[in-house]
Design a protein around this nucleic acid. Structure first.
Lengths: 214, 214
DNA sequence: ATTTGTGAAGCACTTCACAGCC
DNA sequence: GGCTGTGAAGTGCTTCACAAAT
């Protein structure tokens, strides 16, 4: 906790991105990357790259650059994704079903180990037929019990907006640590529970602003 | 084009959020909102709220606050969402199907008027059965033709990552104006085409960082 | 020779504080 | 009296530029 000094939020977001780029470089067989190379790929300034890493330690070799494998491990440790995170998805409509089989989660140590809905019988046909039933859909009444039993730390909300805050409250009661909310209604959670709201239309609004005003 | 002075990117993101909050207030029957009221709801500073709006004009009444209906209209005009935007979704897997029936798009003047896949026959059963086939799924070979015929300005990519850049290139060739990329591989587009990458795992990484380091 | 790590400068966004207006 | 709009102050992030390291 508070292992590092105060880090700009923008730096944290870039770390995810560096990691992705480093994985691509590694896939191409590269072993070392300089700050300026990484900067070009990630569309940022080279000094920014160095400063971002320097917040957390001295990871590079002067005259050489950064060892890709090592740097990846450092970033994973900084972000806290150097271990498995167990996740529950609540609300198994179209979006929830899509997340249950979202390949990129698995690759990254994010494991969906429970799925809940208010009417599991309705979705079972859909899920099993198309996706091979990745996890059993449970009734939301079992939320607290199952979250505790399966040591789940993160909840993803994909319910209709009217239900989002209610589900968030249930998750908090079940001692969840963090919530990612995909529903279009923002949720609030009391300390120390962290929550993030992720709205698709906000991204579209942003895109449209730039189409309209540039 | 360039109707306004240089506006902080953060301001643009907040505008979407203000709009959502104003709609909630309106639904509760409110007619007027002060900057400090809006600030509380949106979790920002009241001066920030006033400054954000002041970039674009004088929308408030001193001693009173902001007329909610008028302010909503101003924000919609600023963002460019005071008209319909016609959208194509490319890649009708789980995520693409989910977007085809995503209710919030419709509410906001975002209309998905075409859907493409490399193998439309595979997805038709799934789509029609579960969702009442909101739009016909077309073969990707028809992308350019249909985008032009249907006056589509925005493309949403929900293909597997290996295909994302190829699809982006096709969209650019079809004279798309903007692209929202949901695939986990970042895409690049030449000027003047705008593109935004939206990665779920990046949001999770961010959440996990805060769970790990606070 | 090359590239990192970093203090200092530059720049941009946020907040303050108050004049101006209703 | 209450609230907006805004110059000025404050804060924080980004970029520069160079010493330090290999």
């Amino acid at each position: 906790m508070a292992k590092y000094p105060k880090i700009p939020e923008a730096t944290i977001r870039r770390l995810s991105n560096y990691l992705k780029c480093l994985e691509d470089l590694e896939a191409k067989g590269e072993k070392v990357a300089s700050s300026s190379h990484l900067a070009t790929i990630c569309n940022v300034n080279a000094a920014q790259v160095r400063k971002d890493f320097a917040y957390f330690g001295e990871f590079g070799i002067r005259g050489m650059g950064y060892n890709i494998k090592e740097l990846k491990d450092h970033i994973k440790e900084i972000l806290g994704i150097n271990r498995e995170w167990r996740i529950a998805v609540i609300g198994i409509g179209n979006m929830g079903s899509a997340l249950l089989v979202y390949k990129d989660f698995l690759k990254q140590n994010y494991r969906i180990v429970a799925a809940f809905d208010i009417d599991p019988s309705k979705v079972i046909g859909h899920i099993s037929e198309r996706m091979g039933r990745p996890v059993e859909i449970l009734h939301i009444d079992r939320l607290k019990e199952v979250i505790e039993a399966r040591k789940i730390e993160i909840g993803i909300i994909t319910t209709p907006p009217q239900e989002a805050q209610k589900v968030a409250d249930l998750l908090v009661e079940a001692n969840i640590r963090g919530i990612l909310n995909f529903s279009p209604a923002p949720i609030r959670t009391p300390e120390p529970v962290k929550s993030m709201n992720l709205f698709f239309t906000a991204a579209l609004d942003n895109l449209v602003y730039h189409l309209t005003n540039n």
